[in-house]
Design a protein around this nucleic acid. Structure first.
Lengths: 248, 248
DNA sequence: ACCTGAACACCGTTCAAGT
DNA sequence: ACCTGAACACCGTTCAAGT
């Protein structure tokens, strides 16, 4: 993680100041992040509030703001925390295998905290939560694949975009208000498909209901889309192979 | 658009009730959506509020709730409105060309209202804003490409995910609070790259600064990533060609 | 049917004041 | 340095009441 805008954390300044009340009572940035992540996991982004984090920590809301500049900064911190340690092993593998490992590792990380998903692509700040080591390694891998110069950068962006795309959709949250009613609406809608007007859709409906991105009422936390994700990875890698071969 | 959860709009019920005050003064669902979209375009999602929509329309906040059940429903309506008329011409083109047209059309639609981007993948409701005609056509196109049965559904999801991925990132909003300071932070961070520790990154930095997804301080509304997007499309299509050929 | 007017239960954030 | 306590300017949403 790149840790932008982290307040300069003016060094402990030696002696002065009472010791933390009961050894574990001191409010720290880490403790705030941990608690915030728990709350996000439990209740989702829609219900997430700084005040709630404060209450859970047994502290006044304003206390949070001593350690963290803003709600958005806290959320960005959560993204960085969830995506830390993403770097695939630098083993001898082919570039294709490295990319596979990256994609799968990314999805697994999000799977542990799926409610973070809507934040990932949604803000430039969270886009930036990738460390230099990982970027360097990715450039290296794509160079091995045959990309040079301008096209190396393009390939880089293609990989980042692909990495985020499927998983964001897979774990998009269902509506908070009245999910049951919404599921009914969706199923009624699906029931309105007719073989006359939409023959292919009607034919594949059993396989698509609650599985295709446009016809789901539950997300990837309930209905996992493993085989589709594998197809996605292989599509992107095969596409990159072809693109690389066209250049040289 | 699928128009889930639209309140049944109980039919005008004949005669009763005074006529709308000054002919154009009647508050309608369409007028609310239009105003909401304007406000979203102007001030972004972070600043968007139902109360603001009401104020702009010269009406009490509660008046909105007669026409629209909730803020989220309104946002979903905006997504549907922006993505309406996405269906590429059903011309005789090859399936590859149809997909190209779809991807480009989707990006162009978002480009007209870029502040909608963070909403697109972020909620299941907005995932559902795709009409049956478009889905049927896509299944048809992917059948032409050679996908059948289970793999047809996988290919369908691959295309949807790919369609959303790049564009969501490209138009991810910069932080609302102090964007200038954030840009400085980002540039300072970029300045800290060293050729010793990250040689490839250092070498390509001029081309990556504000262009690569992980090193930007401005989004696609300012810095367009056209050539990268083209590379992205071609990667996905080439990947699908390969995947389809592996099956048969 | 459709809107007013007021209220409820929240927010994020700021700031003086304490220790 | 770090937190309390209170306040400010907002929210989304509900509901009785008007017309």
């Amino acid at each position: 993680m790149t840790s932008l805008s982290k307040p300069v954390a003016s060094k402990p300044s030696g002696r002065r100041g009472r010791p933390p009340a009961a050894a574990g009572d001191a409010l720290t940035r880490d403790k705030i992040v941990a608690t915030a992540l728990e709350l996000l996991d439990q209740h989702g982004l829609a219900a997430f509030s700084v005040r709630d984090v404060a209450k859970t920590l047994g502290v006044y809301p304003a206390a949070i703001y001593w350690h963290i500049p803003t709600r958005n900064a806290l959320l960005a911190e959560l993204v960085a925390h969830v995506l830390r340690d993403l770097n695939p092993k630098c083993a001898v593998a082919a570039w294709q295998d490295w990319l596979r490992e990256l994609f799968i590792g990314y999805r697994d990380a999000i799977r542990l905290h799926p409610n973070i998903a809507p934040l990932i692509g949604a803000q430039l700040v969270s886009n930036a939560s990738m460390d230099f080591d990982l970027m360097e390694r990715m450039l290296q891998v794509l160079s091995e694949a045959g990309f040079r110069g301008q096209r190396l950068i393009a390939a880089f962006n293609v990989v980042i975009a692909a990495q985020v795309g499927f998983v964001t959709l897979e774990f998009a949250p269902a509506p908070a208000e009245d999910p049951a009613g919404w599921a009914e609406d969706m199923q009624r809608l699906i029931g309105s498909v007719t073989a006359e007007r939409h023959p292919l859709l009607a034919a594949h409906l059993p396989r698509m209901a609650n599985r295709s991105f446009t016809l789901r009422w539950q997300n990837g936390t309930v209905i996992s889309l493993d085989s589709h994700f594998t197809a996605y990875i292989e599509t992107v890698i095969a596409g990159l192979e072809r693109l690389a071969s066209q250049i040289n």
